[in-house]
């Protein structure tokens, strides 16, 4: 009896193994059949670490701010739900005091104090959101961009608790009815997943700069932080800039030019 059982277990084990490897062998054959390969896009813009410099002095009117936000939100099918509770946003405006809590001074020139800053995901060098995600649904690409895999997100919102910049939005409800005009080239999101700015990774692949940069008339500068000759590095070496909450060590990649036009040039 005991031998019989042992034999049976052996047999069962072996056949399971064969079954498992058999399946993967079939998969291999199918793959081999296709003889396909994947390549990066030849036109893609590449960098070691993408970064952005925002010079709000170069953004004049309310319309110009709107244009930048709209450029992003319209191509990415970001819904306008119209209430603060369910709000989804990738790039938005916030005043100086609340953009830089802890380091904002009371006595600063009016053009800084009352001018809206543009806030978006900082694409941190050490992103806490990536550290906490239990499924690798949010992760950092080799070029420094922190992106979301909406297919994998389980909607636990740990990343929202972890993000020190309030850059992440959750789809508390189906966003589709709130996307006025959908861009047919880009997906929407579904209820129950987290989303945020992607530094327009889909545009970079086509050789285009981020939509907000394109719409900003030079107020937003985008480039490789690790290339000393890049435009962002040139601005950073000539103008005084701030980053949001640098003291917590996340290494944000979005810089804000502080100071007026007197420094320009």
């Amino acid at each position: 009896m005991s031998i019989n059982r042992r034999e049976f277990l052996k047999l069962a084990g072996t056949s399971t193994l064969i079954g498992l490897t058999g399946i993967s062998a079939v998969e291999e054959i199918l793959k081999g059949n296709a003889e396909a390969s994947v390549l990066p896009s030849p036109a893609a813009l590449t960098a070691k670490r993408w970064a952005m410099v925002i010079d709000i002095n170069k953004i004049g009117t309310k319309e110009e701010y709107e244009k930048i936000t709209q450029a992003c939100h319209s191509i990415h099918n970001v819904p306008d739900i119209g209430n603060k509770k369910d709000e989804v946003k990738w790039i938005w405006q916030e005043d100086y005091e609340h953009s830089f809590p802890g380091i904002s001074d009371e006595f600063v020139p009016d053009h800084i104090k009352h001018k809206p800053f543009l806030l978006l995901c900082n694409h941190c060098a050490k992103p806490p959101c990536v550290r906490v995600c239990p499924t690798k649904a949010t992760f950092k690409r080799p070029d420094g961009i922190v992106v979301m895999d909406y297919h994998r997100c389980i909607g636990c919102r740990f990343c929202m608790a972890a993000c020190p910049y309030g850059a992440r939005s959750f789809n508390w409800r189906d966003p589709r009815p709130f996307v006025k005009e959908t861009n047919p080239e880009f997906p929407t999101r579904t209820k129950g997943v987290v989303e945020k700015c992607t530094f327009c990774s889909e545009r970079l692949a086509k050789g285009l700069k981020p939509a907000c940069v394109e719409a900003s008339n030079g107020a937003l500068i985008f480039g490789d932080l690790e290339d000393p000759n890049s435009e962002v590095r040139k601005v950073l070496s000539t103008k005084y800039t701030l980053r949001r909450k640098p003291e917590i060590g996340t290494g944000p990649s979005v810089y804000y030019v502080i100071g007026g036009n007197e420094h320009a040039g």
Binding site: P134, T135, K136, I154, R157, G192
Partner: peptide, 16 residues
């Protein structure tokens, strides 16, 4: 609390 409860097994499928 999950926004996508049907994907809860992702925690096991993609252990992090």
């Amino acid at each position: 609390d999950l926004g996508q409860p049907m994907r809860v097994m992702n925690v096991i499928l993609h252990p992090t």
